[in-house]
Design a protein around this nucleic acid. Sequence first.
DNA 1: TGCCACCGTTTACGTACGTAATTGAAAATT
DNA 2: AATTTTCAATTACGTACGTAAACGGTGGCA
Lengths: 123, 123
Amino acid sequence: MAISEAEAVVMEVLWRGAPRTAEEILAEVGPAQQWQEGTVKSLLNRLLRKKAVHAERDGRRYLYTPLLSRGQYVQQESKGLLDRLFGGRVAPLVAHFSEQRKLSKKDIAELRQLLRELDDERH
Amino acid sequence: MAISEAEAVVMEVLWRGAPRTAEEILAEVGPAQQWQEGTVKSLLNRLLRKKAVHAERDGRRYLYTPLLSRGQYVQQESKGLLDRLFGGRVAPLVAHFSEQRKLSKKDIAELRQLLRELDDERH
DNA sequence: TGCCACCGTTTACGTACGTAATTGAAAATT
DNA sequence: AATTTTCAATTACGTACGTAAACGGTGGCA
């Protein structure tokens, strides 16, 4: 089962630093998201069912830790989009952003650097 | 309201060529998707409600045409992912695929070409 | 020892989605 | 004209999601 968008918000908190209690997660996410306590609890439970986080008892409360890494998640999401929209190839995706003028100077510089590094690796 | 994944499958058919009848869409999508007629009709109706397609009566049937362009759709989806996962910047996304060794030779060649073109544009 | 506060678990509820069966109207056939 | 066929529109239904209230157990305090 896939991680939903609201669930991903909780995961982001855990990726920023774990383990965390439900209370801490709420504190970090509540203001921006306008979520009540129950909402965060539900999301955590769904993430538990999906084996995306692990809960370890710590006295009266639980400490939540991500089982799914951010890398894995990013990988799944990106690959999904790439496959669905760009035939699984990266260059067309970048070309798309290029056409939309969504490449910043910084992006371009970094892409250039990246390609240089790939060159080097290939000794 | 967003276009769902199943709805996007129907849109892809219409982007490949419009207008089309429901029957044509089914013929093109049914085998791969294992969808029945009713499924395609429902998806078309939801797309109509979302103003993503337009239907024009043609005798006894309707001809469906996309109102949302593939470009717009791709743009929304890509930007969503980019913002959610890569801070809205393209280079980190490409770096991610690079780390995952998901850049094909062809990708690399095309990216290089793309950067060259960007150089040229900047005369 | 009995009650309260604190947490997690369970249940709830409206909407969207995937998938389809049912209905209803119009056209074609007999 | 009556019947059958053909479409689209309506309704259905289980699951996921966003959001949260209600329930329940357990440790602390009066």
